[in-house]
């Protein structure tokens, strides 16, 4: 049974991982959970590897940073290289298919065509972050945040004219896990 999930979402600047983390935090609050979202700033954010964290918990969250990284998303090689060491041994790694990963590891690895799904199914790499949200949502398991809440959280945070595209991207992401 879920009690607390600590996620780290990483990629290159502009891939929208911060927005992805905000969507999870928003949705968690809407479903009556606690959430904290933090991110890297300045040189760290501009240097190629952008990082956002989100902690979702049934209990009050005190320390605001990720300590036991349950789920790590890495959309680029650089972000994978930088953050992989922090992933918990029982955790889950999600990487884009373009990222080379060490397969001989204790944690679960999902190497998925995230960016290509965005390009091929939606027509723009711009929604890679929302495809990722779908993937991570499917991996988080049922009973953490409801599907409807996720959809309305996405709708609230993306530009109004792109809502349909983004909802589709979210669903494509879910499909990458659930088929």
């Amino acid at each position: 049974m879920f009690n607390k999930i600590e996620m780290r979402l990483s990629g290159s600047g502009g891939q929208g991982v911060i927005l992805a983390a905000i969507i999870f935090a928003d949705a968690a609050l809407a479903d009556g959970l606690n959430a904290i979202q933090t991110q890297s700033y300045g040189p760290e954010a501009r240097g190629g590897a952008s990082k956002a964290e989100v902690i979702i918990s049934k209990d009050e969250i005190k320390y605001p940073k990720v300590t036991k990284n349950d789920i790590l998303l890495a959309l680029t090689q650089k972000s994978y290289d930088k953050y992989i060491a922090s992933l918990d041994k029982d955790g889950i790694l999600v990487v884009d298919e373009s990222v080379n990963v060490n397969e001989d590891v204790p944690y679960k690895v999902y190497k998925l065509p995230i960016i290509n799904t965005a390009i091929n199914s939606i027509g723009t790499h711009m929604v890679s972050n929302i495809v990722s949200v779908g993937v991570l949502y499917a991996l988080m398991g049922d009973g953490v945040i409801s599907y409807d809440t996720m959809v309305s959280s996405i709708s609230d945070r993306v530009p109004p004219t792109t809502i349909d595209k983004n909802i589709k991207a979210f669903e494509e992401g879910i499909k990458l896990i659930r088929g």
Partner: peptide
């Protein structure tokens, strides 16, 4: 900065 930049409810 910790409190200034973190997002919560």
């Amino acid at each position: 900065e910790t409190v200034g930049h973190m997002r919560e409810k």
